[in-house]
């Protein structure tokens, strides 16, 4: 058996340095990472990377920063599995491996010139934040912007700094709701679907971008369709376990006659392309 180095292997990882770790909730941390090469990661909002912690393995993580942020990129990571728990043990100065970016991100060129409604549920705010901050950094290119955020309770609210920043701005309408409030909570209580009817929209020129857990999609989409938003104007990002990122390992394949691989054809899809998928 001959063993040789494979210089063109797609399994090679690039070395990344953690430059900042911020705890956001008991389960989620925000990592700011810089590639060792000093070169910026060339990515689109909505894409993901494969993160390696050698010994623990590799896992797909959504990019949550906007590519308009130069030099470094950010990942919001919930400690949920082997790799993400290993990541939570890392601190600034530690190294990790990066492959990617992978996948089709949000169609920013298609969205330009339109009104946008962002709907985020739970951890869905992480990939959506990459697009929201991209839109804010290129604010003039877009019409009216509404951000609707839902989560279980105020303690699980992610990206507090961003939420405050969005809330203060005059050029975005921000509203948020929780399933169960607390003593200090003065905002909305209820499901995210309850705040969609109150939004005024021009269906001709509105795109809705929705990211959340699978259970949320059905209900949110039905509210958006009631608002006469076209199916192809509803943009979703789907969750699957993308193990290889190369459309081969089979784990992220979506059950549909169109034979989509989430890692290559997605994770971002317009609703008309995936409306027949039983479990989005």
């Amino acid at each position: 058996m001959i063993k040789e180095e494979l210089v063109n292997s797609n399994w090679r990882v690039r070395k990344g340095h953690i430059i900042r770790v911020k705890r956001m909730t008991p389960c989620e941390k925000l990592f700011e990472i810089e590639l060792e090469s000093g070169r910026a990661l060339d990515y689109e909002p909505g894409q993901f990377v494969q993160v390696s912690v050698f010994g623990a393995g590799e896992a797909p993580i959504s990019l949550c920063s906007s590519p308009t942020k130069r030099g470094s990129f950010e990942l919001c990571v919930r400690a949920a599995g082997k790799l993400t728990n290993a990541m939570h043990a890392l601190e600034a100065g530690d190294e990790l491996g990066i492959r990617g970016p992978f996948g089709k991100g949000f169609p920013v060129k298609v969205l330009a010139g339109n009104d946008l409604i962002f709907v985020a549920g739970g951890l869905g705010i992480a990939p959506l934040r990459s697009l929201i901050n991209y839109v804010i950094d290129n604010r003039r290119e877009f019409g009216k912007v509404d951000i609707l955020l839902g989560c279980r309770n105020p303690k699980e609210m992610l990206f507090a700094d961003d939420l405050e920043f969005w809330q203060k701005r005059v050029d975005v309408n921000f509203s948020c709701t929780v399933d169960t409030g607390g003593p200090d909570w003065e905002g909305n209580i209820g499901l995210i679907t309850s705040i969609i009817p109150g939004i005024t929209i021009n269906p001709e020129r509105t795109f809705a971008v929705v990211v959340g857990p699978p259970v949320m999609y059905k209900f949110v989409i039905s509210e958006l369709l009631k608002k006469k938003i076209a199916e192809r104007h509803i943009i979703l990002s789907l969750e699957r376990h993308m193990k290889c990122g190369m459309g081969k390992c089979g784990h992220c394949q979506i059950d549909s006659l169109d034979n989509y691989y989430c890692c290559q054809d997605g994770p971002v899809f317009s609703y008309d392309r995936i409306k027949n998928v039983a479990k989005m």
Binding site: M1, I2, E4, E5, L6, S9, R12, K15, F54, D94
Partner: peptide
């Protein structure tokens, strides 16, 4: 791969 600070990784093929 080797772990720890200054970790290194090499993609390989055995044939």
């Amino acid at each position: 791969f080797s772990t720890g600070r200054g970790e290194n990784a090499e993609a390989i093929l055995e044939h």
